[in-house]
Design a protein around this nucleic acid. Structure first.
Lengths: 344, 344
DNA sequence: ATGAAAGCGCTAACAA
DNA sequence: TTGTTAGCGCTTTCAT
């Protein structure tokens, strides 16, 4: 492994000069610069970032913690993070917490030991909030979800509005019995989406009896189960709003097994878009989050924070809007039209 | 930021003793050990891995390069990698090459600068093979695909056999006109899967006219286009084998738009399973790769290589088997039954 | 069993 | 403009 000494020796200069050339400190004459550059090339020299990090006290590495990379939502966010980081000369250490707060805590400790310059945390295990010590260790930016009591920098989606749009779309189509498959209520994401549902229902003058509200855990299986429960009540919903991609998959599987037509018998809107959403029959109407952009913005925010000249401008929350993408899994309420017809 | 000096001072010992305690070198008396441990706790001290890395010449970090994390195949492999790495005390720097060989090259350079102990490369941009220099820089293990001329350690799936199983399943169901949507033929993966198709067809005594063979690029759009092409030839196939998850999505979208029933009009088998595969109607028959396990095995192989005592046991290739998961997107060939009936 | 000190490869302050 | 040198925080001989 070549070091600066080797380059310096070959170029016939001091290591300080080599360092100056590498870091473009500009105080080096053209002649020497060329000799150094040539020597570097000849030796195929690559500066040792570890040594550099130790010296300058910054690693140019950030950590990113996600609950599950194999969930396409996080994978897409991660892409944005990786791209922005690379652009600005940072690398990212990926940590998958597997939704386990112990693992998350371990990861945080490891990241600290590795002296990452900051971390992006895409999971709001609220317990973390209590551990303020952790937060003091390095700049952090929260992504997607925000733990209770944290006011730090965060990049979020307006979940309430997103859910509201989804359900309003349904009410506009004439649906009155609208079920929801919600996510965990110990997460801001779960709460906000449920509230968006409530708001839209209320505005439409619709009631939201308990039987229409199922709370899942953001996983496939709970979507499946909730779907079954919703469709087996006495007066089943004509439309269902599912609060994330995984639960939607479970719901769709449920409807398929039950032989319930979508959107003929029941309309479906999902929070989260996904690569498969337009390949389904029917193509799925959904609330799309700007995943890639969320990753980019969060990264920019974190890096700005890291590179801020002491006068720490406290990074605010950035709230992005989700987008309603109307496709074919939602249709006018058939039942109500009949009811309407009967009335006449 | 606390250092060993702080701990040593508080405990009233030398930094050598602190180091010995941390690394469990065992030559420290119980009494001192306790004092050191207490001091560490009191100061909330976490050893600086950067300094340690510089000193010992190992970083306990590995790099992983994937062409696209948002493809669930790679995301799942990554999960396995992350889990195994964490278990053995390594962190992983994730690099997304975006299928661009320049970016990949840049990532490799960065990883080298960061002195990672090894890298996992899940992309066979063949150009790399020529750059043997890169390979000498650190231990590498190839995942999923293998560049030409490389005999290094690699974890692969038996793509030929997987494709063979897929197509054999189709021939067994009585299909004789079987189309294939292949992947890029400058990749081992693309070639092997095509050959598996050819082998199964040949063994079944079936011909493979050019019109049944479409070559895509592993992306959604090419699956869509190929689907259209296949279904618009004079005597369209009654079954299609699609060579990866993304192209399958495109194909499914195509069939849906064309209103072609699956499996009634055409059976579909896909290489790659995915979370959505069992939520589709019909549930998708596919060849599942052991993604998570691939990640685990590749990581173990790489770490063993890294930690090998000089006597470098040259890690072999590990070839895993794919698994045929028969679901409802494949059915007996309807057309042939008719033809059969006519002959009588 | 414990400590003193050298040095990993680099940057930055200072000298020349 | 260029070089000398002192560390960054750690591990590891080598004395004691």
């Amino acid at each position: 492994m070549r070091s600066m000494r080797d380059v310096a020796r070959l170029a016939g200069v001091s290591i300080a000069t080599v360092s100056a050339v590498i870091n473009e400190k500009g105080t080096v004459s053209k002649a020497l610069e060329k000799r150094v550059l040539d020597a570097m090339k000849a030796l195929d020299y690559q500066p040792d970032q570890i040594a550099r990090s130790l010296r300058v006290g910054r690693s140019n590495v950030i950590g990113m913690i996600v609950p599950d990379v194999s969930n396409s939502f996080y994978a897409e966010v991660l892409r944005g993070v990786e791209a922005s980081s690379e652009r600005r000369g940072y690398s990212v250490i990926l940590c998958d917490s597997n939704e386990d707060s112990d693992r998350e805590q371990r990861h945080l400790k490891t990241l600290y030991s590795r002296r990452v310059d900051g971390v992006l945390l895409a999971s709001s295990i609220s317990q973390l909030a209590h551990d303020r010590l952790t937060i003091r260790r390095f700049p952090m930016v929260f992504l997607d979800a925000i733990p209770n009591g944290i006011e730090q920098g965060a990049v979020l989606v307006d979940n309430l509005e997103g859910a509201y749009m989804a359900v309003q779309h349904l009410t506009t189509l004439g649906h009155t019995r609208i079920g929801i498959i919600g996510g965990r209520l110990d997460r801001s994401v779960g709460i906000d989406r449920l509230n968006g549902y409530r708001k839209a229902m209320q505005e439409a003058g619709l009631s939201t009896p308990e039987e229409l509200i199922r709370i899942g855990d953001f996983h496939d299986e709970s979507g499946f189960r909730s779907g079954h429960e919703l469709m087996s009540i006495e007066n089943p919903p004509t439309a269902i709003f599912s609060c994330n991609n995984r639960m939607t998959l479970g719901l769709l599987r449920c409807l398929s097994e039950l032989g319930i037509g979508c959107p003929t018998s029941v309309s479906v809107v999902s929070f989260d878009d996904a690569d498969w959403a337009t390949s389904f029959t029917p193509r799925l109407t959904c609330i799309a989050q700007p995943t890639y952009k969320m990753g980019e913005i969060a990264t920019e925010m974190l890096l700005d924070k890291i590179e801020a000249k002491d006068d720490a401008l406290d990074s605010p929350r950035t709230i992005l809007r989700a987008e309603l993408r109307i496709r074919e899994s939602t249709a006018p309420c058939h039942k109500n039209q009949e009811a309407h017809a009967q009335v006449r």
